[in-house]
Design a binder for these strands. Structure first.
Lengths: 138, 138
DNA sequence: CTTGAACCTCTAGTCACTAGAGAGACTACA
DNA sequence: TGTAGTCTCTCTAGTGACTAGAGGTTCAAG
């Protein structure tokens, strides 16, 4: 049995965030001391590690809820879990694609100006003002 | 002189978003009709195109504010503009790097399970529960 | 002059937290 | 047992960049 501060230290999840997860229904409300303070067991620790790991991988609170629901019913098909993971994967891939396009455009814009002129002639500002100066769409 | 709806159509920025930009100080408050409706000129159109383009490239409202400030003083050095663009570029690169790590991890996790088993044996769930199953840190 | 679309302001909601106030509880040491 | 100091409690409000909706007013076409 350990306090919320201890749980926070072990999982590296901040104390208010732990309380937030509880409020959102991700983390079961733990036991309380006579003085109303939360006391966790290893169960809580494992659950929170799971949540943190999933958050680190970019899963939404909603997605994590579904995954936990599944965890609580070990006999169910895990199809949903695979779907959620694959959905997340394609979201990540889409983001990468988009960011790479941005990277190219920004590289081009930033290289166009050495920062030594005045704003009037600045290629950065001109590029932003006139989309036609862009190599391709974004 | 055209209405906010017309401006919205031409720039593809939604009406409430235009009002929001005005509130945030990005867009100068335009003239109004006798009945208090906004009426824009080409100036407003150009300004909004600039903002939209910058937002599309991921610049924050704050960064855009600085860029506009600079635009309004064409005699100033454009060093700040180049810095902002370069800052944005390195942020984008950092995001790409992180997302690529996530992509690898998610790929590994998603491939570990075909979704045909039950939750108890699901590799997706197991991987999330146990960070040690991860190839590398993230 | 009427109709109906577009416009106005204001408030509240989104996501996943983060910050702070003010009060109460716990623990270590004397 | 007293007390100092840290931890914890709940509650409210703020973040960024919008989005949604209510309830009311104005505009332009016919």
């Amino acid at each position: 049995m350990f306090s919320i501060g201890e749980l926070s230290k072990r999982t590296k999840v901040k104390v208010p965030t732990i309380r937030y997860y509880e409020e959102m229904g991700l983390l079961a409300p733990p036991e309380r001391t006579a003085g109303n303070q939360r006391r966790y067991t290893n169960d809580g620790l494992e659950r929170l590690s799971f949540i943190r790991h999933a958050r680190d991988l970019g899963f939404s609170i909603d997605a994590i809820s579904s995954l936990i629901e599944l965890q609580n019913h070990p006999d169910r098909s895990c199809e949903a879990a695979t779907e959620i993971a694959e959905g997340q994967l394609s979201e990540v891939r889409a983001k990468i694609k988009r960011l790479k396009a941005l990277e190219n455009e920004l590289k081009r814009i930033a290289q166009g100006c050495d920062g030594r002129g005045v704003a009037e002639d600045c290629y950065v500002l001109a590029s932003l003002a006139d989309h036609d100066l862009c190599g391709r769409d974004h």
